[in-house]
């Protein structure tokens, strides 16, 4: 179940081969991150799910059904989509932007609006902002509206294309944390695209790391990728090879454990002292690793 990519290929009409022989599954109710540098086919793969792009080879199945037979417009109305620069309609008030999907699915204006207000609250926005036009909001607020719009209609699947890529680092962190909170509550089947390693490690239950040329370099949990990189490319991409993700602990003056990076720069203090096992990098993020790019 979930979303299954089976030997998917895409060659654009101009001859550019964006992805080749990609197979992976996004299990239901979990977050899968497509990670890779620019141009390696992440957006192409994401857009296949709601048929904004059709594969030139292979199959894509949602809950076991090949979507090649699905009507694109209807399919898109059942899937949430969030993109980098919010993509909000500049001529519609925020509230109506959020309500768009509900209206397209046949909801009357009144109920759609009140549902949209609840969604604004859900993503941490004052519903009073709903009366504004998108360009009257900050970039971070616009992204929140984008997320609210993606969640409208309670879709099972949420597609996110670098959803927090265009906001400043502090706001990005806030949005990522909120996304995590939301996801524990809503348990959508999420496919999220990013080139940000930290984001992938922090949000992805599963990470699909792509290499240039549109192939999968490695797929697995953050833990698996960090502890057993499949090859040199993966190790270098994640910064494991250069030791950037190796952390050390040493005893501090008052007997507490101080965590340092590979160069010995202190990063923080361990609250519970490590047990007898030799302490190593914790990919779950309880110790924030140094920016790995």
């Amino acid at each position: 179940m979930g979303i299954e990519f089976r030997h998917v290929e895409k060659t654009y009409p101009d001859g550019a081969q964006a992805v080749r022989d990609i197979s992976f599954t996004v299990p239901s109710h979990t977050t899968t991150v497509l990670l890779g540098s620019s141009g390696c086919g992440k957006t192409t793969l994401l857009r296949m799910v709601n048929r904004m792009v059709d594969p030139t080879g292979g199959q894509l199945l949602i809950d076991g059904e090949d979507i090649a037979g699905a009507e694109p417009v209807r399919l898109r109305r059942s899937i949430g989509y969030v993109m980098q620069h919010s993509g909000l309609l500049p001529h519609r008030r925020v509230i109506d932007n959020v309500a768009t999907g509900l209206r397209l699915n046949g909801a009357a204006r009144g109920p759609a609006r009140s549902q949209a207000e609840e969604l604004l609250e859900l993503v941490g926005l004052d519903p009073a902002l709903g009366r504004r036009y998108p360009d009257q909001l900050s970039g971070g607020q616009q992204q929140r509206v984008g997320v609210a719009r993606g969640l409208a209609g309670d879709p099972n699947i949420l597609l996110m294309d670098e959803p927090f890529g265009a906001v400043d680092p502090l706001v990005r962190l806030e949005l990522q944390q909120q996304m995590k909170r939301l996801q524990t509550e809503l348990r959508k089947t999420v496919l999220l695209v990013t080139h940000d390693i930290e984001e992938a490690l922090s949000l992805g239950d599963q990470i699909i790391l792509l290499r240039p040329g549109g192939e999968i370099a490695q797929a697995g949990t953050a833990q698996e990728l960090l502890s057993a990189p499949a090859d040199d490319f993966v190790a270098r991409f994640l910064g494991v090879a250069q030791g950037r993700r190796r952390l050390r602990t040493s005893a501090g003056q008052d007997g507490e454990w101080v965590v340092t990076d590979a160069e010995g720069r202190p990063l923080g203090v361990v609250e519970a002292p490590p047990g007898p096992v030799h302490p190593r990098a914790d990919p779950s993020g309880s110790v924030p690793p140094e920016d790995g790019r």
Partner: peptide
């Protein structure tokens, strides 16, 4: 971008 977003919403 706005046109693409609209298409993705299911217009």
């Amino acid at each position: 971008e706005v046109r693409l977003a609209a298409a993705a919403q299911g217009y």
